[in-house]
Amino acid sequence: MTTPKPAVHAAREQVGRLLVLVPYLHQRGEVRVSEAAEALGVDAAQLDKDLRVLFMCGLPGGYPDDLINVDLDALEGEGIIRVDNADYLARPVRFAPSEAAALVVALRAIEQSASPETREVVERTLAKLETAGAASAAQQIHVSDDASPGTDLLPVLQGAIDRGRQLEISYYVPTRDDQSSRIVEPRAITRVGDATYLDAWCHTAHGDRAFRLDRIVAASELPEAVSERAAEPRDLSGGWFHGDGETVAVTLRLQPAAQWVPEYYLVTETSPGPEGTLDVVIDVASESWLHQLLFRVAPHASVLAPVEFAESFTANARAALSLYQERSVG
């Protein structure tokens, strides 16, 4: 039985509502709770909770003049929301040059491997950024087609997706130094993080898989049509995916400082741990990915199971620490 997700999972949704609510109220001066709840798509009780968090938010410093002011008397007595000392949230957000450059590079990389429909959206977004001047510092950036291995197979892969046909691919897995032939039912080509993937149902693995384009050695379209298993693309926008092989369920114990992890990565189970900790189970397809995550949250997380994963990370951490010690001695 899966444990209900803790309240921390709702933090992103709450922040999103508050960022929408403040400009909404700033334009109107005041608004009834029922009207604001309907506009935001939440019930009045949830909005009341959000507002009691809002009056503890504001500019860095935390002094009374830095915080957003919510009129609690009007909220509790008249059911009316009044907010002030939040003018800075009514100003439009502007990109710094480095932010604009990073956004344009990412969009242009997506544009090269996207489907025609997605490419059209990306082109419109780039045009709006450049019209608004947000990308003025990045307009000269060029992303070369040769920078991403595997892009030469894009016409074959995208053609099979468009025609609803299965593919035979030759796929290389560097961690096992193994190259195998697979029959897959492709759904979409998508970008997750810094890599581009073919999202497909794999006949060899009998399940959903995401194949990195730079590891697909060859691909050919087959006459067989895809089944309902490949009818709809999966949402991989969260950045986590089932990788080349079988996944391993890893149990992590998170201290309060690391309890943001379930907000950003898919976890299958959560349960309270001792002394305010949180135990989560996450399906891991790459041990190196797990090590990277643990280095990010160290020393506020530990591996409870499997034991070999805990031991391998400890050995990896000691090896990294020894490099720093050697440099300091030198």
Results as ranks from 00 to 15, higher is better:
residue 164 G to T: 00
residue 142 H to N: 07
residue 108 R to L: 06
residue 194 D to V: 05
residue 311 E to N: 09
residue 202 C to H: 02
residue 232 E to D: 10
residue 288 S to R: 14
residue 215 R to A: 00
residue 298 A to D: 05
residue 281 V to K: 08
residue 57 C to I: 05
residue 262 P to I: 10
residue 280 V to D: 01
residue 326 E to F: 10
residue 330 G to K: 01
residue 77 G to I: 15
residue 329 V to T: 14
residue 27 Q to I: 10
residue 202 C to L: 03
residue 129 L to D: 05
residue 246 E to W: 08
residue 147 A to N: 05
residue 261 V to G: 03
residue 102 A to M: 14
residue 229 R to F: 08
residue 255 Q to S: 13
residue 230 A to D: 02
residue 89 L to S: 06
residue 272 P to W: 04
residue 208 D to Q: 14
residue 240 W to C: 03
residue 303 V to F: 06
residue 279 D to Q: 12
residue 311 E to V: 11
residue 170 S to Q: 13
residue 14 Q to K: 14
residue 61 G to S: 07
residue 29 G to L: 00
residue 118 T to Q: 15
residue 100 A to L: 01
residue 287 E to L: 15
residue 323 L to I: 13
residue 25 L to I: 14
residue 210 A to I: 01
residue 70 V to C: 01
residue 79 G to L: 09
residue 22 V to S: 03
residue 231 A to Q: 12
residue 72 L to Q: 07
residue 105 V to K: 03
residue 26 H to R: 15
residue 80 I to M: 11
residue 138 A to T: 00
residue 296 R to F: 12
residue 270 T to R: 06
residue 115 S to F: 01
residue 119 R to P: 06
residue 269 E to H: 15
residue 165 R to N: 10
residue 61 G to W: 04
residue 252 L to S: 02
residue 250 V to I: 13
residue 93 V to Y: 11
residue 330 G to L: 11
residue 115 S to E: 06
residue 137 A to W: 07
residue 292 Q to G: 15
residue 302 S to M: 12
residue 164 G to D: 03
residue 327 R to C: 07
residue 19 L to Q: 12
residue 137 A to S: 14
residue 293 L to E: 02
residue 9 H to D: 12
residue 86 A to W: 02
residue 327 R to I: 14
residue 102 A to W: 07
residue 17 R to L: 09
residue 243 G to P: 04
residue 93 V to A: 12
residue 86 A to H: 01
residue 210 A to R: 04
residue 250 V to C: 08
residue 8 V to D: 03
residue 169 I to H: 02
residue 45 A to Y: 09
residue 154 L to G: 00
residue 195 A to E: 01
residue 50 D to G: 04
residue 27 Q to F: 12
residue 251 T to P: 06
residue 28 R to W: 09
residue 313 F to A: 08
residue 12 R to W: 11
residue 116 P to R: 03
residue 95 F to S: 11
residue 302 S to R: 14
residue 3 T to Y: 11
residue 90 A to M: 10
residue 164 G to I: 08
residue 231 A to F: 13
residue 63 Y to T: 15
residue 118 T to A: 11
residue 180 S to I: 14
residue 116 P to C: 06
residue 184 V to K: 01
residue 281 V to H: 01
residue 166 Q to S: 13
residue 196 T to L: 00
residue 45 A to G: 13
residue 246 E to A: 15
residue 300 H to R: 09
residue 127 A to F: 13
residue 196 T to M: 04
residue 177 D to R: 13
